[in-house]
Design a binder for these strands. Structure first.
Lengths: 358, 358
DNA sequence: CTGTTAGCGCCTTCAA
DNA sequence: TTGAAGGCGCTAACAG
């Protein structure tokens, strides 16, 4: 019942030419090698008629290239962000004729090795290694043996991994932008929700948080504004946002704006403000980061800097394919672009949670 | 620099045996064919030492089987649901030694064909076809040419696709359960948010909504309870939930419970209730469907029936692999289990939005 | 018990 | 301008 796949030699037979000729025609190298137009047409017509599709396995075996990418990420939680990344990567790959194997490690190093092995066994042309929470990590050895780009990962350790291409969100800049937004709209009593005032201890999402914080502080300092308070949180979730914001309100310190370190904290902040009878943005403005799905659904709509998942994933994919098609990779001596870091901006989604007090 | 992959014959050479012998040993068929223990050890040892990994392309070419699945879905929106499905499918596949190619069509039929071709070119062993919103659709021809299971899709049209294995959420049952929950806790003035009272016109998420509605009505009728009102929505998003709930309140009809058809509508309902000074659940109970991420973060926590994405995807994957390994597929005459429909229950996530009024 | 042989389907010299 | 031959790495018959 399974109509067996049509092979190239069947097409050649049908067209009355040699398999190699058919191969050339179908690979589009006919002109280059001056194959008669009639032969070309016969081949194409036969291929069409038989519904010929090349066997990618076979071609891959022969050429050593499969037009296939591997996408490996950790993180099972926080999946809204990851989902879009995977999707964007797949789209970008597809647009250039690549398919992608997707794997998730859940942070398990052994599983990661297995996954990478399985992909490497299937001869993927390159790898995208991603984490959902920007952070530093060791790069598995497998990654240094083939073209690889790091998505949202800052590599630590040597082993040549330092010169892998990296795609990262521009957190520092986002921190600056957020602070500037508040300053420009006349806010002076700003509280930070999510991290303490010291960038050195900006746990738990180390890199992102620390960079954002530094960015924000640089702008505020320049404007001569002191943070009223900065509330560290161990989990960036609504209950924490609620708790911290309630604390701020209870302490009775002046407060005209909350700089929340992600939308979930902001959601908690909204709830706390709401239950205390404070209005957003009339009494307190709120700015945040991520642009989670629900940000637009909060009332009033949450003004937030979008984590550029799609742009990052697309960029990573394009960089990877460039790398592959240029024929370089991390293992090479790489006189070229190898090791570049690409920072992707976090665009502002301006909604209704920031008042103009200027 | 790229250490070339070690091949089987190198291992055989190193171990001093023939390639085929090495192949048998490494495939675990050594005992079966009584290969001397010493030879076995030498082979294994050599493989280990050289870091041998079989080339899956080559094996696939030879055996016609790749331990690779394709996962193709439409839907770009509503991604929270899809993300988890993909992830669960990948995990389930991985657990049985399969990798998965992921593709998204965004509803574009041409793209879908291309994607399926690309996967078929790469010799996937089977296919999972998914949609994010349960609905009926035509099944592409490619799917009938290899083992395929339908995830969250009700096929229409003939072409043999009717006997594909299907995995669907048990919406009817969920509707019953939701209604029963409200009835058992003493609610009598129930409004439905999201669909009108007539199952025939339960647009827009046709199947799911209609089934849920029928289920709910069956229980309510049996309990002798009439719906106070049923509010159809064209979009199941918070603004609609807000609008419809506000309308219910304004009309001043008695209301002790809201049966929202998804969490986003429920979110809007919460907001409307909140802004009118009504308390959940003291004044109005709310039950919903999906268990979106934010359901637990609403205050009070939203009681909802979880859309069983993970269970569904895992089930679909396991069914598919069973199918593959049993060597059947849709094209066969299939005297067996072919064409089964598997209904996956929607488990209750009981939180704080339902009061006990009994 | 082990080795030889013959492809899987394609691509790429090389010779005609 | 086209055809023949060889081989990518692996597995499955079949000899030995």
């Amino acid at each position: 019942m399974v109509r067996k796949r049509v092979t190239l030699s069947q097409v050649a037979l049908e067209a009355g030419v040699a398999p190699s000729t058919a191969s050339l025609v179908l690979a589009g190298r006919a002109d280059e090698l001056r194959i008669s137009t009639t032969a070309q047409e016969r081949v194409r017509e036969a291929a069409q008629r038989l519904g010929y599709r090349p066997n990618a396995l076979s071609a891959g075996l022969r050429t050593g290239t499969t037009r296939t990418l591997g996408f490996v990420s950790d993180s099972v939680a926080s999946s809204q962000l990851t989902g879009e990344m995977i999707r964007a990567a797949i789209e970008a790959a597809r647009a250039r004729g690549y398919m992608v194997f997707v794997g998730e490690t859940g942070g398990d190093a052994q599983l990661e090795r297995d996954l990478l092995d399985a992909m490497s066994d299937r001869q993927v042309d390159g790898l995208i290694l991603a984490t959902m929470l920007t952070h530093a990590r060791q790069i598995p050895a497998a990654a240094t043996r083939m073209p690889t780009v790091l998505l949202n990962i800052e590599p630590i350790g040597e082993r040549g991994s330092v010169d892998l291409v990296r795609v990262l969100p521009d957190e520092y800049r986002a921190g600056q932008d957020a602070a500037r937004l508040l300053v420009d709209t006349g806010h002076r009593r700003i509280h930070i929700i999510g991290v303490g005032a010291d960038p050195e201890h900006a746990h738990p999402f180390a890199l992102a948080a620390a960079l954002r914080l530094r960015g924000a502080l640089s702008v505020l300092t320049e404007a001569g504004i002191d943070i009223v308070s900065a509330q560290p949180a161990t989990q960036w979730l609504p209950p924490e946002g609620f708790r911290l914001t309630s604390a701020v309100i209870e302490r009775g310190e002046p407060c005209d704006a909350l700089l929340c370190f992600n939308d979930r904290l902001a959601m908690g902040a909204y709830q706390a403000l709401h239950e205390t009878g404070l209005r957003v943005p009339d009494d307190v403005s709120v700015v945040s980061f991520d642009d989670t799905t629900f940000a637009r659904w909060l009332r009033p709509g949450l003004t937030t800097f979008a984590f550029p998942q799609r742009a990052m994933a697309k960029r990573a994919t394009d960089e990877l394919i460039d790398l592959i098609e240029r024929g370089e990779h991390a293992g090479d001596e790489g006189g070229g672009v190898t090791g570049a870091t690409h920072l992707i901006p976090l665009p502002l989604r301006s909604r209704e949670s920031v008042a103009d007090r200027s």
